[in-house]
């Protein structure tokens, strides 16, 4: 009762030989399926007739190596991609809504820039609309963690990952990123096609396309972390939804969803510069419309910094929340 037992070969438990060596010809179907009560023999019952012949035992125990951990989370991402693909038909409403928004803004920007008004810092109707394609594609693809986490917190299921060899925050981050990927590609395709039809193509530098991969991935990671952070507030408040609304609206204005931050008054641009929201929407979208290496480098640094901050906060919130479950029950 004081020292942990050695993790391998527990006492009193026979090793079962591999399937190839014995019992290989005994399929699961034809085996005895006794419904009788078990023999009342305690541990010796194990030596009775075996219907699990050849269930191979595992000898090595986890290494916890970096490679194994990477494979673990990569597997979650891959499973989440497949999971999202399985019901992607359910979310076809989003692209329609997306196209509608693009239509409205196409009319808005065309009206604004119609009477020969000069472009604002290089943004005219076309640039402004393509900018919106990128910001909306990111925003609409961010998975809605709130409902899921909220339910897990309410039912106490939030704790059940505790006894799995996988961190809750890491699991949900990988899960959400995996789910976001197919949705993002779908939305992007819809956005590109709609914008081309409405206002015509946008010349894009190849370097911009290259830079967009890390930029969008980091943006999505940050967005998921902030979302997790807010969703975990459900530990303390009955309904964390309002925080999401505010966050969403922050993204609208200070993230530069509908209007590039360059259009904002100077002081507001300065405020936005010091907040994380712009690195989620405006940052990547500006790379698409007006690429520069310096902008890209600066964006990646800011994204990485904010990801670090929110990763720490999210993990801390989670652990504090679990302690909360301890006292209030699940």
């Amino acid at each position: 009762m004081t020292r942990p037992e050695p993790p391998t070969s527990p006492p009193g438990r026979p090793d079962l030989a591999p399937a190839s060596q014995k019992g290989g010809d005994r399929g699961g179907q034809g085996e005895e399926r006794s419904l009788a009560p078990p023999p009342e023999t305690g541990a010796e019952g194990m030596n009775g007739p075996r219907s699990f012949p050849g269930l191979p035992r595992r000898v090595p125990r986890p290494t916890g190596s970096l490679a194994a951990v990477a494979r673990k989370y990569a597997a979650i991402v891959a499973t989440a991609v497949r999971h999202r693909m399985a019901y992607i038909g359910d979310s076809l409403g989003r692209p329609v809504f997306f196209a509608l928004i693009l239509f409205v803004f196409c009319r808005l920007w065309q009206t604004v820039f119609a009477d020969g008004r000069a472009p604002v810092v290089g943004f005219a109707a076309r640039e402004s609309l393509w900018y919106l394609v990128m910001t909306e594609a990111i925003l609409l693809s961010a998975p809605r963690l709130q409902g899921r986490i909220d339910e897990e917190v309410k039912t106490g299921a939030v704790a059940t990952l505790l006894n799995k060899p996988c961190h809750y925050v890491g699991y949900h981050l990988a899960f959400a990123l995996g789910e976001a990927l197919p949705v993002f590609l779908l939305n992007l395709a819809v956005g590109v096609v709609t914008a081309r039809v409405l206002i015509g193509p946008l010349p894009v530098a190849p370097a911009a396309v290259l830079a967009l991969f890390p930029a969008v991935t980091l943006a999505m990671t940050l967005s998921v972390l902030i979302g997790l952070c807010l969703a975990l507030l459900a530990f303390w408040v009955e309904d964390a939804a309002p925080f999401f609304w505010v966050y969403q609206k922050m993204l609208f204005i200070l993230g530069g969803l509908m209007i590039p931050l360059d259009f904002l008054p100077g002081w507001l641009q300065a405020v936005a510069g010091w907040l994380p929201f712009r690195t989620i929407l405006c940052g990547p979208a500006r790379l698409l419309v007006r690429f520069s290496v310096a902008d890209a480098g600066s964006l990646f640094l800011w994204q990485a910094a904010w990801i670090a901050v929110f990763a720490v906060v999210t993990v801390a919130l989670y652990h504090a929340g679990i302690r909360q479950v301890e006292s209030h029950g699940g």
């Binding site: 399937a19 050849g54 191979p56 986890p62 494979r71 597997a75 979650i76 799995k164």
Partner: peptide
């Protein structure tokens, strides 16, 4: 498949165990 990764099971062992469990 995901659980096998999560518990860091070697591929061949996972295959064997899965086959037996599926049968039983």
């Amino acid at each position: 498949n995901l659980l096998a990764r999560m518990y860091e099971l070697p591929d061949d062992l996972y295959r064997q165990r899965l086959d037996r469990l599926v049968a039983v």
